[in-house]
Design a protein around this nucleic acid. Structure first.
Lengths: 138, 138
DNA sequence: TTGCTCCTCACGTCACGTGAGGTGGC
DNA sequence: TTGCTCCTCACGTCACGTGAGGTGGC
């Protein structure tokens, strides 16, 4: 514990919804199909995230069982994805076991990402301008 | 030949520059390295485009020799790329032998592409807004 | 002989999609 | 038995990057 950590933003993805098969007492538990439905993903995507070490559901035999902390972690992953980070960047940003729902974003990474997206934005805007010029000429 | 073709835009990429090893009389000819330099690409990229059937340089033994029509075609490919088309879409858009420097863009494809890019633009703008909010909080 | 440019495999990366063939419980 | 959901390979897609090992001509 030290009192002067580098600036760091613990970014909570709040997800108030609850559901799934309540198997134990009150802690929701999901099959892969349920979790996929809930987040609008494919089974393949969830298995893929597991292979990358982003998710680690427990098993009942061969079948994957996802607890609410896994769902929280998945929400954080998708949040990072929406911000335009790659999965391997996301892997370094997902916080530790204690708070699976937070993303570990430094100010520096934040500014780098902004610069990256601004470049993409400029490219797309140029393309759009040209396409509009062309389509106006038809 | 019919007089009522669908609306179609033959889009010339003008590239006035000339250079390269003038091997035959007055028609510039390039090695793969020269062409890569000229367009800021890697050798790998040019070989890859050839495998996809986008470029078909002639050979002198095993070595690739690019004529000015190949350079024109490459310019058209890169133009389509800047407009956000995939290489396989581009493959269908590059015009026939007679005019290697033109892209064959229908009005419909143009509008579809505009819609696609507008969606990407919106996603990037949302991500940017969120990242700016986060970075302002540091 | 060294240096340069070229060549052909062929595997890696990114974020998955898409079968192929099989299992388990209602 | 049929239907449903799950499973593990394993190859495909997109646009290349990155060696590995070799060739040809100055």
């Amino acid at each position: 514990m030290n009192g002067c950590n580098p600036p760091e933003f613990l970014f909570a993805a709040d997800d108030g919804a609850s559901g799934g098969s309540e198997r134990a007492n009150s802690d929701p538990v999901y099959t892969i199909g349920e979790l996929a439905d809930r987040f609008g993903l494919t089974l393949r995507t969830l298995r893929f995230y597991e292979r990358l070490g982003l998710l680690t559901p427990r098993r009942e035999g061969r079948r994957r069982i996802y607890a609410s902390k896994d769902a929280d972690r998945l929400a954080a992953i998708l949040r990072a994805k929406r911000l335009g980070f790659t999965l391997s960047e996301t892997r370094h940003m997902i916080a530790d076991e204690a708070s699976p729902e937070t993303l570990n974003l430094t100010r520096e990474k934040c500014l780098e990402q902004i610069a990256r997206l601004e470049r993409q934005l400029a490219e797309i805007e140029e393309a759009l301008a040209e396409l509009r010029r062309i389509s106006a000429s038809f």
